[in-house]
Amino acid sequence: MSSADTYFKNIGKGFWTVLLGMKVTMRHLFTPAVTIQYPDARMPIPERGRNRLYVNMDDCIGCNQCGMACPVGCITIETAKSLPTEDLGVTSTGQKKRLWVTQFDIDFAKCCYCGLCVPPCPTECIYMTDVFEFSEYDRDKLNYSFITLTPEEAAQKTEQAKAAEKEAAAKKAAAAAAAAAQKAAQPQNVTPSQNVTQPPAQSIPPAAPRPAPAVAPAPQPAVKPEIAGAEAGQAPSVTAEPQGGQKVSSPESVYPPKPQEQATRAPQELKPNDNPKGSAD
């Protein structure tokens, strides 16, 4: 009896809930859609929207704070010291610029749009814009260069800074060679002492000590040493080859910045200006 009861009850319930569901879908058939026709209509992007980064190079002092804050190491900055005779002007915040920024690349293929690079900037020259449609067929084209110097200028500034540095180094070496050597070794000295003060040393097998930060196999080895150098307050280690002719976009194209035409992923494999149209395709 009761099983027959539940049998019919189940059938009734089945029909009733099906009808309820049909009522809901029928109601929605006549409610206006919530979606929009994307390329024609767009959702407003809020003021705080975090999309493509933009760097206002007029204000950049080349301090590499953003590069250090970046968790994925997508910002590559190289600077060259300006000569005392050169005047680079001041930023809009009134800070005096002292460095030529010879390379300022942001690889948007790596960027995770976390926005961590924005707050540390002392001159507020790096910020996120509302541009989010910048797909490329070639991944290398997502590596944007923001510098305002032409490649030749950048190379020249680097050479010039190198020469000045060499001069200063020669002077210094003549004065006190030993002191300079000690200073260069300083960043390596920091980490072993950290290792010594590790608290749970007994709980962690000593066979797998934590790699020293300065020589850590960081995801971006190309960036890391540079950061270490900047932390120690040294002049950035400037090498000539990566910048030579990398930048193809013209200096006056400030906004929106043009993507770099040439692969920067593996500069050592490419001869500068070998194939300015891009090599991957």
Binding site: I45, P46, E47, R48, G49, R50, C112, Y113, C114, G115, L116, P119, M128
Partner: peptide
């Protein structure tokens, strides 16, 4: 979320010691 911190999926909104933005 987007109007608060600018991102829709991966927010990076809560920082050690505070928040990246106040409520808009």
């Amino acid at each position: 979320f987007e109007m608060t911190c600018g991102a829709r999926l991966l927010y990076n909104y809560m920082w050690p010691g505070g928040l990246s933005h106040d409520l808009p």
